[in-house]
Amino acid sequence: MSPVRAELRKLLGLPTAWVGLVLGTLTAPVVLLLNAPYTRRAIAAGTLTDTSDLGLRDLGIGLIGPIVLGVIVVSSEYTSTGQDAPGARQLTATLAAVPDRLRLLVAKATALVLVVAAQAAVTTAATLTLTQVLYGEHAPAPAPARVVAAILYWTLTALLAYAIALISRNGIVPLTLLIINSSVVSVSYLLTKVTDLASYLPDIVGAQMFIGSADFPVEIAPVTAGLVMTAWVIALLVVGAVLFERRDV
């Protein structure tokens, strides 16, 4: 238990973590608000008939939060602690305190899941409430299972970022990879134009856990999508853990 408490403190004591928390929590509701006038007109004009994904659809943009959190749980251990000793890193103190590396990784993952699940719950609740306020009866409340799936997707994405950071031992690689892919150009999405297999990449398949009607090239049932996403996360976590266990610090 103590290592988890320590990891929670470490994470919430980092200014970058709060950037991830605030950005991740506010982005989706803000985007929803900004889109409101356009969406209202579309509903009034009858061009937007399927409103079942309103709200949930915008959650994806907030994934930057879990991605940042998942990455810095690891990258903060590897950043240099000062110019006096270029090789010195927090990881030395961390492993001195919790030398069982597997136990450490579990503690870190637990702290991350607790923070991200809470963030996802708050964001999802805010986004769905806002959708109700804005569109009223036009936007039916989604089934509870879909809401849970959305929270689960956020949590799994954080763990995916965590695993990639463990493998790369820094923050730049996973942040660039995941943020560009989830916001600027989705390489995964472009790949789906080339091969149907790309539909099983984590970010494409993960969204299908809770978004039904979007134009996915291959339709995958939510539960299957969740299982595929979980398999990705487990596979990458295992690779990350084996490397972390074996490497010299």
């Binding site: 004591g13 970058t16 602690t81 006096d84 000793a85 010195a88 890193r89 103190a93 961390t94 001195a96």
Partner: peptide, 16 residues
């Protein structure tokens, strides 16, 4: 144990 540096992340206070 005391190795290179303090082991403290730059953004943290000594107490934290």
């Amino acid at each position: 144990a005391l190795l290179d540096g303090s082991g403290a992340h730059r953004a943290r206070t000594a107490r934290a």
